[in-house]
Amino acid sequence: MFRNNYDNDSVTFSPQGRIFQVEYAQEAVKQGSVVVGLVSKTHAVLAAVKRNAEELSSYQKKVIGIDDHYGIGLAGLASDARVLSNFMKQQSLASRMTYGRPIPIERIVNMIGDRAQTNTQHYGKRPYGVGLLVAGVDDLGPHLFDFQPSGMTYEMTACAIGARSQMARTYLERHLDEFQSSSREELIKHGLRALKETLPQDKELTVDNTSLAVIGLGDEAKGKIEPFKLFEGQPIAAWLETTFETQQGEREGAAEGESMEVDQ
């Protein structure tokens, strides 16, 4: 019987140069519920589907604000995300403390990337089982980064991770050109629509199972930002309503064409 001998730990390369433990960790990300992120010239948005264990239980936490100028959305092992987010919070405070400067998004992302890499090269450690989308604003404008258990980080214009996230990515790719010039409200709608794509037929986005976070450059002078804010529950009811009410008609028409391309 075939047995893969090269997947017992993260310090063993397969003959093809792959590290299976890392690849398995990426699978853990796909077990988590979906998170979508996207950026315009002025804003970055995270949108996520929350799961609950049972009807009477609370919903899981999908989005964590780290500092005024950025936050993360997670898919996969939530406790690994908590370790990383605590680290990010410490580094962010340290930057504000020592330099009086909000930490640049790319740098904090690289820091967690480097931490995750260490876990893939030393025996007795395991790769993080979580993927993150980091959305924030700094001197260079709004950013969105994708972090993976391998320690790989990418800056993206839009991204989705988690279960059935391919559906969302397909939506995002199709509307990619619109994001740059989108207004805050339009960007939120795109985020929610991309999120909706990932849901099975019988499920809907509700005020209970949806998380939404927005961060943006403020209207005021340089240096002022619209701080990272998480919206959950009733505050997002209006967005859900306007996004999907107006969509209903269009969707019926577009549905056929879409499903053909989505197929993979």
């Binding site: 990418y154 214009t157 995002l172 790719e173 990619l176």
Partner: peptide, 8 residues
């Protein structure tokens, strides 16, 4: 991926 930020 098409979603990668160009030039970053």
């Amino acid at each position: 991926s098409k979603l990668l930020k160009v030039g970053a």
